[in-house]
Design a protein around this nucleic acid. Structure first.
Length: 488
RNA sequence: CGGGGUGUAGCGCAGCCCGGUUAGCGCAUCUGCUUUGGGAGCAGAGGGUCGCAGGUUCGAAUCCUGCCACCCCGACCA
């Protein structure tokens, strides 16, 4: 048991906070609701970001950057959009401070009031579509496939490190298309990119689906999502991809001349994932000893610890192993620090979640072996130094695979088909996870269930089998099951 | 905004009810020595506007008043 991390069974939520802080991912800041992302946490985010960025570029997108500030009037141009975000916007009203007359510091200069207030972007659809109006005149300008890496601000009343903070980092793709079909195809394509990233890099199994009207993005016609399950049985929305129809094109008057010579409104999509994925990563894989990071996104995939009896051969052996691993593209850290004892380091690197730990001492040298410990199962074994590069490379693949399989088994065991309301409530309280149940399709029933149980419809899975049934709450006819869960 | 709680060293806390030497303890930090295969031991050292302001008192971390901040629960949250 780790010395400074609360166990999951004792207090899951405290375990999460302890882990995030003690493993050096993030910390609270002087600003309420805002966090400091620390170097180790940022290194993981950089790996996620770089991978996603490459995937975006491989699917034809380019990066750009739009302003942090949005004129207040822009936000209100799309009715549903402003309705959805108005309550959590930070607003800039002045542009200057001055010395207080009583010498107590600086105060806002009342003479420096802005003509029009600026909103700190909660998302960039409005400023971007206002810009697209100037960029799009012809079908030849389409499609426009742009992504932005940025920070956004949503003034939430209650925050949690990574999962919900006032400011967070994300990417937002904003694309413009000539036809409805093409825009929908783009929406689905990016959902697939997210799902692939989640499963293959983060080892995070996800359900792809569509949101109900209640849960839809403010201003979208359809919101697609990937939903993941955390170890406490709560769901986490890991990414969304929106088909925006012509809503923003109409709000910002973005039209183009078609091949046929007619004037048409542009079709739009937007899609995003955020630093919230860091929270998903922590809660999906880690244990009471600390983080467990999938090899593909781990800042260090292997750490080598010399067991420090002063010995020149030891340095040589370690450097040779590191060289062999690095030649295979493996990210290796060598801990030559002689202040801390091996036992301390073992515990420390387990807390940091480094997938593979190698330990070498005089004993190993004599035997021509090295101690290999894998983080996911915490198993240790002695392996011949000869051929260690292949062994570790295979082990990293095996760990990546195992983490995914483990999470998928956990998730699949927690998708429960339920047909009665009693069962629904009981399953939610005792087992958690996703509940697959019939629903009459109305927002009223969805709200009712939410009020009574705090469970929401996470999504209607894609390719959902059609099946006649009765709504689990109202008994009205239903044509398919949907996934319910309590969520973050 | 409603209910509850907490502010004392970098972190975690005790002391407060019942006012009284130089405000303690653990971890961390620094120095030295011995250690090093699962979170080392000993010795020494440094570090404090006791959240802020006022009041009572010979004397306030402690009692009183006001204020501020943060945390938890709820409301809120694609």
């Amino acid at each position: 048991m780790s010395k400074d991390i609360t166990s999951r069974s004792e207090d899951y939520s405290q375990w999460y906070i302890d882990l995030v802080r003690k493993a050096g991912l993030a910390d609270y800041s002087a600003v309420k609701g805002c966090m400091v992302i620390k170097p180790y946490g940022f290194a993981i985010w950089e790996n996620m970001r770089d991978t996603l960025d490459r995937m975006f570029k491989e699917t034809g997108h380019v990066n750009a950057y739009f302003p942090l500030f949005i004129p207040k009037s822009f936000l209100s141009k799309e009715a549903a959009h402003v309705e959805g975000f108005a309550k959590e916007c930070a607003v800039v009203t002045h542009y200057r401070l001055k010395n207080a007359e009583d010498g107590s510091g600086v105060v806002v200069d009342p003479d420096a009031r802005l003509e029009e207030e600026l909103i700190v972007r909660p998302t960039s659809e409005t400023i971007i579509w206002n810009t697209y109006r100037d960029w799009i005149q012809s079908y030849r300008d389409l499609p426009l496939l742009i992504n932005q890496w940025a920070n956004v601000v949503r003034w939430e009343m209650r925050t949690r490190l990574f999962l919900r903070t006032a400011e967070f980092l994300w990417q937002e793709g904003h694309t413009a298309h000539a036809t409805r079909e093409e825009a929908i195809e783009e929406t689905r394509k990016m959902l697939d990119v997210y799902a692939t990233f989640a499963e293959e890099w983060m080892a995070l199994p996800v359900v792809k689906g569509v949101k109900t009207t209640n849960e839809r993005f403010a201003g979208a016609e359809d919101t697609y999502c990937i939903e993941a399950l955390m170890q406490d049985g709560k769901a986490l929305q890991a990414g969304t991809s929106h088909f925006l129809g012509q809503n923003f094109a109409k709000a910002f008057d973005v039209q183009f001349s078609s091949k046929e010579g007619t004037l048409e409104y542009v079709w739009a999509t937007s899609w995003g994932v955020s630093t919230r994925l860091m929270g998903a990563l922590v809660m999906a894989h880690s244990d009471d000893e600390g983080l467990i990071i999938p090899p593909k996104i781990a800042p260090h995939q292997v750490v080598i610890i010399p067991i420090p009896k002063p010995l020149a051969e030891l340095d040589e052996a370690i450097n040779n192993v590191a060289k062999e691993l690095r030649a295979r593209g493996i990210r290796v850290k060598i801990d030559t620090d002689d202040q801390n004892r091996p036992g301390y380091k073992f515990a420390e690197y387990e807390k940091l979640g480094i997938p593979v730990r190698l330990a070498v001492g005089a004993r190993d040298l004599a035997a021509g072996t090295i101690e290999v410990a894998r983080r996911d199962t915490r198993e240790k074994q002695s392996v011949a130094l000869d051929g260690i590069g292949d062994h570790v490379a295979n082990l990293l693949d095996e760990i990546q695979r195992n983490l995914f399989e483990r999470a998928r088994t956990f998730r699949d065991e927690r998708i429960t088909r339920v047909d009665t309301w009693d069962e629904f409530v009981k399953t939610l309280d005792e087992k958690g996870g996703f509940i697959s149940a019939h629903w009459d399709g109305t927002g009223e029933t969805e709200d009712l269930i939410k009020d009574e149980t705090k469970a929401t419809i996470r999504c209607i899975p894609l390719n959902n089998p059609q099946e006649d049934g009765l709504c689990v709450r109202t008994g009205k006819p239903s044509s398919q099951r949907v996934l319910f869960a309590r969520a973050y």
